[in-house]
Write a protein that binds this DNA or RNA. Structure first.
Lengths: 136, 136
DNA sequence: ATAAGCATTAAACTGAACTTTAAGTCAAAT
DNA sequence: ATTTGACTTAAAGTTCAGTTTAATGCTTAT
């Protein structure tokens, strides 16, 4: 069992944020000690860690809340939960494509800078006006 | 030359947003017709497209603004611009790693659902309490 | 000539996800 | 005994990147 401070340190996640998640209903069944302080078990930390991973890739708190609500209803909601996760997986793939394109665009831009610094005039036609460059 | 409406349609970007970028100083030297309406050239659209690509991967408007301001100062600022873009490229790589991890976590979670639905009791130990699952 | 449809500006508003503040309780340490 | 530091709650504030609104003006079609 961990205090909120310990949880916060282990997860590298502000205690305020953990309380916020609790208030939003993302942490059902968190136990309290006899002073009303939250006590976290390992499985609570695992769940917060997983939520942090989902959040970091764009899943909304509302979607997390829906997963929790469905999970609380039992195994007959697994189909709906699977649908949410599969949609998120598609969203992750889309984001990966966006990142790949951006990486390529930045690389091209850096090439433009290289050519300008080398004073390579053949390549300066790539520049936007004579200052702001745009790729091809 | 394009009106803001044409630019908006070509870029799939709200006219309001383009005006907002202009107001923020992200579109220097945009021309106006004799009624004060903005006129966009192809190179303006290219620059907005590139900014959209950067924005979509998390570059802040403030960073874009800095790139523009540096570009307006001339080629002697290319080193600073390169540093911003290289930092952004690192940030893109970091995001790619986060996405890869999340994809893996979602896949594991979907596996857990599969095992529960198959009624595979050996695998139920993976679940969080008996409702909220956490990976490994 | 008047309505529709485009443009302009400044400023207020929105939503999401925290973050901070305020006001308070409790227990251990000095 | 009182300070320190951790916890509690509710509520207000923050940030970012637009978005919406309001007030206005020009041009073209009816």
């Amino acid at each position: 069992m961990f205090t909120i401070k310990e949880a916060s340190e282990k997860l590298n996640c502000a205690a305020h944020t953990i309380r916020f998640y609790d208030k939003e209903g993302l942490l059902p069944n968190i136990r309290r000690d006899d002073h009303g302080n939250r006590m976290f078990e390992k499985r609570d930390l695992d769940w917060i860690r997983l939520m942090t991973c989902f959040r970091a890739t764009g899943m909304s708190v509302a979607d997390l809340k829906q997963i929790v609500d469905l999970a609380l209803q039992g195994d007959e909601t697994i189909g709906q939960r699977r649908a949410i996760l599969e949609a998120h997986q598609e969203e992750i793939k889309r984001k990966q494509r966006v990142l790949d394109e951006a990486f390529e665009a930045v690389s091209q831009k850096l090439e433009v800078y290289n050519n300008i610094e080398k004073g390579n005039p053949e390549e300066r036609f790539l520049t936007y006006i004579d200052k702001l460059d745009s790729p091809q």
